[in-house]
Design a protein around this nucleic acid. Structure first.
Length: 391
DNA sequence: GCGATCAGCT
DNA sequence: CACAGCTGATCGC
């Protein structure tokens, strides 16, 4: 769950993944992907007023994110102000920072492998090269294949700061099965259950709106059937996914449902096997290859993650070799963003630059959805100060 | 009656 | 179990 407050130490005139409070003074906005903890304030009238101020303020997103936003009535009114940027190609953005002060920054979108449309943002300009990862899932070795992290002569770019998805930066999540491993095992179970009886059906319990599309596609290929999804209409911009889903429960044997959705209307005559897709927290005693857990005869829990494991995050951060590391997420069993950044830094064996300005950081990182006043104080008193770790 | 916000739940 | 999101209550306009 993102705790990023929206503002970075560098490029203070832009906001990313937060659209409320102090962020409303920003001159440009970036949305990394369509999960609600990254969209706080996006549907608010205050944010719309900011865009309508006539200062040419835009919301920059990937093409797919734009399509997903516009499929949701809450965001249609933002349409005029949404600018989609291409992947892996640097775009120079001019910004009206103050009344007569122009600033420019080059931004590159990097596909983040978290959910449809998800991207990282690489900013390059006077404040140095800064990488905001958003949420991501990269397997080991992905970083060296990302062109925009390299110069034309294939040398690594110098990265001043990285703002990292530290969701699973905890010793319990050093290893998480790949999506392929998860889905392959999942399909065996589903195949067997469906073959047993023609009234047998599958209920996939999901906890996020987007991020499970890989499963839908693999199941569709393997079982040659469409997957029921109440929210199929949100996928209109993704023809492939749209085509493997159905809104008609009568024709389906596999039902993808949000955990809190009431499914009472669907398939009363069917004999359901429930599969809860969640990311297990692997304990020190747990077997790393453990993917599923049987809860009862007709209920399983399966590990499926759209965030990188701790070792995948380390592999990426080591490769990028930044001077400063900031955490965007407080991992389970970790006290603070600072601790998360410190531990990640140590684990990656990074040598950080001593930068005195960072010690005076006033940039608050917030718990999502808890802003109650203009000064950005959380209701629960959980204001987090962002700071990189100086060795 | 509407939108915004929040507690509670999964 | 903890990846994020929905429902329903309440408040203010």
């Amino acid at each position: 769950m993102s705790c990023f407050g929206g503002l970075m130490e560098e490029y203070k005139y832009i906001s990313i993944d937060r659209f409320d409070g102090p962020n409303l003074s920003s001159s440009a906005f970036f949305l990394s992907h369509c999960h609600t903890d990254h969209m706080v304030g996006l549907a608010s009238s205050k944010f719309l007023q900011t865009l309508e101020s006539g200062k040419d303020i835009k919301l920059y997103v990937s093409d797919v994110t734009r399509g997903l936003l516009l499929a949701d009535p809450r965001y249609v009114k933002l349409e005029k102000y949404i600018a989609s940027l291409p992947l892996e190609s640097s775009t120079i953005i001019q910004l009206n920072v103050e009344a007569d002060q122009l600033c420019s920054v080059a931004v590159t979108l990097i596909s983040a492998g978290h959910c449809p449309g998800s991207v990282m943002f690489l900013f390059e300009g006077e404040e140095g090269n800064v990488l905001y990862t958003g949420d991501f899932r990269f397997s080991k070795g992905t970083a060296k294949r990302i062109r925009s992290l390299h110069t034309f002569d294939k040398k690594k770019k110098d990265i001043k700061s990285i703002y990292v998805d530290t969701t699973f930066c905890t010793p319990n999540a050093v290893y998480i099965p790949s999506r392929e491993e998860s889905v392959s095992s999942l399909m065996t179970l589903i195949r067997e259950w469906l073959a047993k009886d023609e009234n047998n059906a599958i209920k996939l319990l999901l906890s996020a709106k987007y991020g499970y599309e890989f499963i839908f596609h693999e199941l569709n290929k393997d079982m040659n059937c469409k997957i029921y999804c109440r929210r199929r209409n949100l996928y209109q911009c993704l023809k492939q996914t749209y085509s493997v889903l159905t809104e008609n429960p009568d024709s389906a044997r596999i039902f993808a449902c949000m955990k809190m959705d009431k499914l009472d209307l669907v398939g009363e005559h069917l004999n359901f096997l429930s599969i809860n897709l969640s990311t297990l927290y692997f304990t020190d005693q747990g077997l790393p290859e453990q993917i599923c857990e049987r809860i009862s005869d007709n209920s399983y829990r399966y590990c499926f993650s759209f965030h990188s494991s701790y070792s995948e995050v380390c592999d990426f951060v080591k490769y990028v070799n930044p001077n400063n590391v900031y955490a965007n997420v407080i991992p389970y069993s970790t006290a603070s963003l600072e601790q998360a950044a410190r531990e990640l830094t140590l684990k990656c064996g990074l040598k950080l630059s001593a930068n005195p300005t960072l010690k005076r950081s006033k940039y608050v990182h917030l718990q999502p959805g808890k802003v109650t006043n203009e000064s950005g104080i959380c209701k629960q008193g959980s204001v987090k100060r962002a700071r990189s770790f100086d060795l």
